[in-house]
């Protein structure tokens, strides 16, 4: 499809691969660390690196949203969850279940299948990066011109999730008798 060679890689690609390495490495630490809070913090690093990846891929707006929502909201929420469930702070050796070996095998097999399929399917695909194509202006226009209805539906969904979370977590609301 494209005549661009893999070697030598362009600067953008090197930056992307470094960020990706950070993301994958921190993700690995998330699922292997023995401290709960560390896992959340490694998650922050992973999401940040991913935001960097988005930036490299010219998706600026998505990158900022990623930082705002994931790093700013989701991880904070998770930390609150850790605190509220009175999880042990510090090392704890029972974070992994006895299922670990099987899980590793399945995960490796998944990785093998996905990587081989992806490499086999897209090894010649090449994307020309044009800065600005993922700016807030472009995306905003696209959302409010073409994706208004899903957007509204999503806002309703968010509202429902909000109410549901409140109902679930409050103890003084009992179900209908």
């Amino acid at each position: 499809m494209s005549a661009v060679d893999f070697w030598p890689p362009s600067t953008l690609e090197i930056v992307f691969l470094l960020l990706g390495l950070v993301a994958v490495g921190s993700a690995l630490l998330v699922v292997t660390t023995r401290q709960l809070v560390h896992a959340a913090l490694w998650l922050v690093l992973c999401f940040g690196a991913l935001a960097g990846c988005y930036l490299v891929l010219t998706a600026e707006f998505v990158a900022w949203v990623q930082v705002l929502i994931y790093v700013g909201a989701v991880v904070v929420l998770l930390l609150f969850g850790i605190m509220l469930t009175r999880a042990p702070i510090g090392r704890s050796d029972d974070l992994d279940s006895g299922n670990r070996v099987v899980a590793a095998v399945v995960a490796l097999a998944t990785a093998g299948v996905l990587v081989s399929v992806v490499v086999g399917g897209f090894q010649h695909a090449y994307a020309d990066l044009r800065p600005g194509s993922g700016s807030a202006e472009e995306l905003g226009g696209s959302i409010f011109r073409n994706w208004v209805l899903p957007f509204e539906a999503l806002s309703v969904l968010l509202l429902a999730a909000l109410i549901g979370a409140i109902v679930l977590s409050r103890t003084d609301i009992s179900g209908r008798r």
């Binding site: 661009v4 993301a23 699922v31 279940s97 299922n99 995960a107 998944t110 996905l114 992806v118 994307a127």
Partner: peptide, 23 residues
């Protein structure tokens, strides 16, 4: 930018997620 790079990174991330969910 070769599409393979983000695709492979995503595949690895996904597999790591799978491992985490299972283990």
């Amino acid at each position: 930018m070769h599409v393979v790079y983000p695709a492979v990174v995503a595949a690895l991330l996904f597999s790591i997620g799978v491992y985490g969910v299972l283990a």
